[in-house]
Simulated scan of single mutants.
Amino acid sequence: MITQAALPAALAFIMFAMGLTMDPGDFRRIAARPQALAAGLAAKLLLVPLAGLAVVTVWRPSADFAVGMILLAACPAGVTSALLTHMAGGRIALAATVTALTSLAATLSVPALVNLGLAAFAGYQQAVEIPVGRMTLGIFLVDTVPLLLGLGIQRLWPRAAERLGRVARPVASLLFALIVVGAFISQRQSLVDHMGDVVPAALVLNLLAMGGAWGLGSLLRLDMADRIAVVMENGLQNSALGIFVAVTLLGNHAMMVPSIVYAFVMNLTAVAFIWAVKRRSIGSRPPRHGHESRP
């Protein structure tokens, strides 16, 4: 009960801290350059589900794991994507907007894709009703509302937001670390039990999602901040929604395993991506005057 209350509260605080750091002008930039938002939505709503279907078709796991993988690929972006986008130097406003819109789209995409998976891989003859509207409302309350609150403080009282942000940002980073560690500890047995059959498939899906998003961003010539946001949004799935649908709505614990495994895998690759972006940024800086390297 404590965990069920603490996790949403921690996620809400993370989004509040992100709102304190955001520039309201970022939303105007999104409106002025809609190709970045279009890329994020297209990759999230089309690329990731297609990648999930491709992985399942090639890997051919058991029926329950196949449906669970399709369910995972249908889920919207994870709530922590904005924080990780911030850590990587991406555009938080774009990440938050994609998360909000894909969460709304999940009311249609999740039932449609899950029923497709049930029919194709589990032999279901009739569609299963999946009322994900209440979960979408929960995502809105945990994700969008705290973000808007932090953004409002930043807009109305910028000095107060700056002082509060100096405390909130490290606390948000600490909370995120605790969430990742807690998820790993609580699900370590599932990781061990399914190391050979689900972990490789989850890793391939994650790399396809991130790599495809990077390629799409390059094709559209998005700037680095937008490209980072699109990659993070596509690599980080709302695994909590996948677990909720599998266990509560479908009553099948095996179908939640891909979401559990992916939750661990996606955080590892996200940290690796942040490290690579930071290293590239440092390497691309011009040398300081007086310290140029000699030929």
Rank of each mutant, 00 (worst) to 15 (best):
250 L>P: 06
185 I>R: 11
129 E>D: 13
258 P>E: 11
246 A>H: 05
106 A>S: 15
167 V>H: 04
260 I>V: 15
295 P>Y: 12
65 F>P: 00
228 I>S: 09
239 S>C: 14
81 S>Y: 06
238 N>L: 11
32 A>K: 14
274 I>D: 02
14 I>T: 11
291 H>S: 14
268 L>Q: 06
202 A>R: 03
163 R>D: 10
221 R>P: 03
140 F>K: 02
91 R>S: 08
74 A>K: 06
86 H>V: 03
201 A>N: 10
96 A>D: 00
269 T>M: 10
247 V>G: 00
247 V>L: 09
254 A>Q: 13
230 V>P: 05
268 L>R: 04
87 M>D: 02
239 S>T: 15
284 S>W: 10
280 R>Q: 15
172 A>K: 09
154 Q>L: 05
159 R>Q: 13
50 L>D: 02
291 H>W: 12
88 A>I: 07
98 V>H: 01
142 V>R: 07
136 T>E: 02
210 M>R: 01
211 G>N: 06
212 G>K: 07
68 G>S: 07
20 L>G: 07
83 L>Y: 01
149 L>W: 09
65 F>L: 12
166 R>V: 03
278 K>N: 14
63 A>M: 10
82 A>D: 10
210 M>I: 12
226 D>F: 13
153 I>G: 00
211 G>Y: 00
91 R>I: 08
161 A>K: 06
48 V>T: 02
264 F>I: 04
15 M>Q: 14
84 L>I: 09
184 F>H: 05
291 H>G: 01
43 A>R: 04
250 L>D: 05
50 L>T: 07
228 I>D: 09
41 L>F: 10
274 I>C: 02
252 N>S: 13
22 M>Y: 00
102 T>F: 04
286 P>C: 09
125 Q>A: 15
257 V>M: 12
52 G>Y: 09
55 V>A: 07
235 G>C: 09
